[in-house]
Design a protein around this nucleic acid. Structure first.
Lengths: 215, 215
DNA sequence: CCATAGTTTTGACGCCATGTCAATAGCACG
DNA sequence: CGTGCTATTGACATGGCGTCAAAACTATGG
């Protein structure tokens, strides 16, 4: 078969073995579906007996969630070390970096983000929400709006929604090729700027006029 | 409703029986997850033997896809009978109607759209894409831009992406309550208008110039 | 009213996947 | 060179899904 015909029983540190299994699982889930990948497959790929998965992760489900969590981590470099210029410039750079990261990890990212589909899994949902939360923080930081307090929740909610559009647009680019990179830049930076500079103030105004008398 | 005390073996027209099973499946999938709902559960709820599911749908998976397809149908009334006024007005009305529909079918819609998550199922993906396609048509129609040909693909791609944001924002509204209805209106109509009136022309221009490295 | 044919519906079987548990075997220490 | 700790495994039990031949229901013709 393969090079490791008669793999002896190796004994590893729990951490190390755990990592090996996780890596194998990640590779397999990357290629197939949750249902199409069996714990036997994972065990075989990791070179261990199936029960070890239960031992280290509890079950198939937990292992899967671990994989999702790992992949979902928002790439930090996107909003790190931004020059101290205008909001527009900083956001343009962030969008560009985002596109870089996504392009580089194309395959993994695509399978992670999936076809924004059904899922309908409370635990997965929680993971996604946390990731969105962090991403929203990054945007606020890039936009030099960290200190905002009035209508902060509304703003963050809109930014999270924007995140969905960003992912969808990125998929359009990578999969369908219906948008090229330059169009994406224009689209994404223009949208977030409009959101921050036009929509957000407008909503603040509505808020003041309606109920919620400030002061 | 029905007498499920000692249900004799009723013989129905295939269409009718199929519909009954589908309804039961829909209700159950609405409450749980794909994995958490067994074909036995569905069969029991529908008052039939399990193999009937295979007979009418092929298998659990196909039945599930059928449910998704049914729920995903874009509500038509959203862009029907729009008054012949400005683009802005027509889009405002459409957004409003969308919010109406969503609010009315709150629970069903939420579980259908799910937490735009992992899924990663090619067939589900196809269904979503088709739904998005139709939705994009509706938007174009509402925007009086049906005849557009130049950069049509790019435009449609951006509208599809916008659809993701619309769904995400609707979820923010219904689940978290972080956005009220008025804010949503402002946000959603403002975004689509900006997309159509500002971003789209800008991208057309870039297209004509060949490549224009901005900044 | 009865027999018969045709279609719906089901009971029973086989297969595969996951989770559990007691037993085994590697490794560090004396 | 034992010896104890624990990582690792083989074997079993449970439960879900798909298949198939047989049963039950209904409509037709005599």
């Amino acid at each position: 078969m393969s090079t490791e015909a008669a793999a002896k029983r190796r004994r590893l540190e729990p951490e190390e073995r755990r990592a090996e299994i996780l890596a194998a699982a990640r590779k397999l889930f990357d290629a197939g579906t949750y249902a199409s990948v069996s714990t036997s497959d994972i065990a075989k790929a990791a070179g261990v007996a199936r029960p070890l998965i239960n031992h280290y992760f509890g079950g198939k489900r937990e292992l899967y969630l671990e994989v999702v969590r790992q992949i979902m981590v928002v790439p930090a470099p996107v909003t790190e070390n931004l020059p101290k210029t205008t909001r527009e410039h900083r956001l343009t750079i962030s969008v560009d970096r985002w596109l870089d990261v996504v392009e580089r990890n194309k395959r993994t990212w695509l399978t992670a983000i999936g076809p924004e589909a059904i899922g309908r899994d409370p635990d997965v949902e929680r993971i996604m929400l946390e990731a969105d939360e962090i991403a929203a923080d990054h945007v606020l930081e890039a936009a030099l709006m960290t200190g905002i307090v009035e209508g902060r929740e509304e703003l963050r909610a809109m930014i999270r929604s924007y995140g969905s559009m960003l992912r969808a647009a990125s998929r359009e680019w990578l999969i369908r090729g219906t948008l090229d990179r330059e169009a994406l830049r224009t689209f994404l930076t223009g949208s977030i700027l409009h959101l921050l500079n036009v929509t957000y103030p407008k909503i603040l105004e509505q808020r003041r006029d309606g109920r919620t008398p400030p002061e």
